[in-house]
Nucleic acid binder design. Structure first.
Length: 405
RNA sequence: GGGGAUAUGGCACAGCGGCAACUGCGGCGGACUGUAAAUCCGCUCCCUCUGGGUUCCUUGGUUCGAGUCCAAGUAUCCCCA
C-alpha cells in the first residue's frame, strides 16, 4: 500500500499545514517505508464538531489515504482538567457521563471524515485514571514551571492578572504521556497545540523512545473571517448542520477565506487546490462561483450529493428569489386577545422563538425587521388582528421564520 | 502569615453623590449587495412602554438620594515571608 515515494507523500502532508517539527525527522520516518502511527487527541468537551475540528481530521484522512494508521485518543482522562490551550480562563469541569456522551457523538462525526478501517480509538482515561501518585509525580518532575509558563496562553493570563489553577499546569504533561503510551510517530493538532505536542517529544525522548513529530494545522477562521471558528463565538459551521444551513453559512464567509477553506476543508486534490490558489493570486478567480462550488463540495462531504444539490437550490430560493423556505419550524400557539380583540405580537414572537424577549421583538418591529406572510410591519404596530395571524408565516430578519399552525 | 491593588451590562474601557449608566468592539435590524467586503441609518437589561420595574461582586451602614462615601465579606492579581 505504501508505494508513494517520500517526496510525493510530503506534497500531500505539507499542504495546508502550519508547522512540522522537525521536518527532517518526518522524512526519516517516512523513508522507513512502514505505516506510521498518527495521533490526534480530542477532548470531548463539546458534543458538536465543526469545520475547525475537521481540519486536523482531514489531514489525518490524507495520512490514511497514504497508508498510515490513525489513533484517535478520546481524552476522557484529560477532560477532567480541560485543555487550557488558547483559553483565557479555566475550563469548567465536565461530568463523566457528559464526557461519554460527547465522546460517542464525536467519534460518530469524526468517522464521516476518517477511514474507520485504519482508525484506532482509545480512551486516555484508561491509563490516566488509575495512575498512582508516584507515577504522577515522576512525570511532573520532568517539566519545570518556567517551561510551562512559557506558553503564550499561560503567560498571557499571568500578565493579565487572570487566574491559573494549579491543575491546568499538568495538562501538557498528561497529553505528552499519551504519546508515550501509544508510541506515536506523529501527533497532530491545531496550531495552539504546538506546546503540548513538543512536550510529547520531550517526554518520549526521556523515556528512551524515538520522539514523535509535531504537526500542526492552522486554526480555521469562522464565518466572521476574523476569529477562530468556535462555538462560543457563534461563528462556526457544524458538521451536523442542516445541509441548507451549512451551505448558507459557507456562502457567508468572506471572499478572502475561500482559498483557505478549499485548502483546509474541501476534498479536492492538492493540484486542484493549487490551481484555485493561483487563480486568486493572479486575480482571475470568480469568488462567487468558487464559493458556491465550495459549498457544494463541503455539504456533499457531510451529507451526500443529493442534499448538496438541494441545499444550493434552497439557498437560491431564499436569498435570490426571497421565497419562504418550505421547512419552516411550526408552532401551535393560542392567540391571547386584548380588549380590542387584537393579539400582542411581541409576546407571540418570544413564544415561537423569533425573539429573546418582548422588548427585543418590539425593537425588531420598529426597525422594520418583522414580516407577516411577507408583508413588513409598520413601526409600533405591536397589536395585530388575529385573522392576519391565522396559519401565517412570521419572519424576523432575513432568515428566521416561524409558521403558526 | 504581612502589606498593597482591583471588582461596572457578551468583551474592553469611562463614570465631581441625582444614571438604565460615556465610549469602542461585538451582536441584531434596515438600505445597498453576491446572506461576501466596504458604506450609511437604527437598535442592543426586563416589562403591552410618552410610563413602570430591576441593575454596576455580596451583605450591612451613612444620606432626601449611592455604581460613586464607610464597614465587613468574597474573588483575582502584585510585593514581602
Amino acid at each position: 500500500m505504501l508505494v508513494l515515494p517520500v517526496e510525493e507523500q510530503l506534497k500531500v502532508i505539507t499542504s495546508g499545514t502550519m508547522q512540522i517539527v522537525p521536518l527532517e525527522g518526518l522524512k526519516e520516518k517516512l523513508a522507513k517505508g512502514k505505516p506510521l502511527t498518527i495521533k490526534l487527541g480530542v477532548d470531548p468537551t463539546s458534543p458538536d464538531l465543526h469545520l475547525g475540528h475537521a481540519v486536523p481530521l482531514r489531514k489525518m484522512r490524507q495520512f490514511q489515504d497514504l497508508g498510515h494508521n490513525v489513533t484517535l485518543i478520546i481524552g476522557n482522562g484529560t477532560a477532567l482538567i480541560g485543555d487550557p490551550s488558547g483559553r483565557d480562563s479555566t475550563r469548567p469541569p465536565l461530568t463523566s457521563e457528559q464526557i461519554e456522551v460527547n465522546a460517542q457523538t464525536y467519534v460518530e462525526q469524526a468517522m464521516k471524515i476518517l477511514d474507520p478501517d485504519r482508525t484506532t480509538v482509545v480512551h486516555n482515561g484508561d491509563w490516566i485514571k488509575p495512575m498512582n501518585l508516584e507515577t504522577m509525580l515522576s512525570l511532573m518532575s520532568k517539566f519545570t514551571v518556567a517551561r510551562i509558563l512559557e506558553r503564550e496562553d499561560f503567560s498571557k493570563r499571568y500578565h493579565n492578572q487572570q487566574p491559573i489553577a494549579l491543575h491546568e499546569f499538568i495538562y501538557p504533561v498528561l497529553q505528552a504521556y499519551d504519546s508515550v503510551m501509544i508510541k506515536a510517530d506523529v501527533e497532530m493538532g491545531g496550531n495552539d497545540q504546538i506546546f503540548n505536542l513538543l512536550a510529547g517529544r520531550d517526554l518520549m525522548r526521556d523515556e528512551g523512545m524515538e520522539p514523535q513529530i509535531a504537526l500542526t494545522m492552522p486554526l480555521l477562521e469562522g464565518t466572521d473571517g476574523v476569529k477562530k471558528m468556535s462555538k462560543s463565538y457563534g461563528n462556526y459551521i457544524g458538521l451536523t448542520d442542516e445541509p441548507a444551513d451549512m451551505f448558507g453559512k459557507i456562502m457567508s464567509i468572506p471572499d478572502e477565506l475561500v482559498a483557505r477553506y478549499y485548502r483546509l476543508c474541501s476534498t479536492l486534490s492538492i493540484d486542484e487546490i493549487d490551481a484555485i490558489d493561483a487563480s486568486f493570486e493572479d486575480g482571475t478567480a470568480d469568488p462567487y462561483a468558487l464559493k458556491r462550488a465550495l459549498g457544494r463540495n463541503i455539504v456533499e462531504l457531510y451529507h451526500g450529493a443529493d442534499k448538496a444539490v438541494q441545499a444550493e437550490e434552497a439557498f437560491d430560493a431564499l436569498f435570490k428569489k426571497h421565497e419562504i423556505p418550505d421547512d419552516v419550524a411550526e408552532f401551535s400557539v393560542e392567540f391571547v386577545r386584548n380588549d380590542q380583540g387584537l393579539v400582542y405580537l411581541p409576546k407571540l414572537m418570544v413564544e415561537v422563538k423569533l425573539s429573546a424577549s418582548a422588548g427585543d421583538a418590539r425593537r425588531l418591529i420598529d426597525g422594520g425587521g418583522v414580516k407577516i406572510n411577507g408583508e413588513a410591519l409598520a413601526p409600533k404596530s405591536y397589536n395585530v388582528d388575529p385573522d392576519l395571524l391565522d396559519h401565517a408565516i412570521l419572519q424576523a430578519g432575513k432568515r428566521r421564520f416561524a409558521k403558526l399552525v
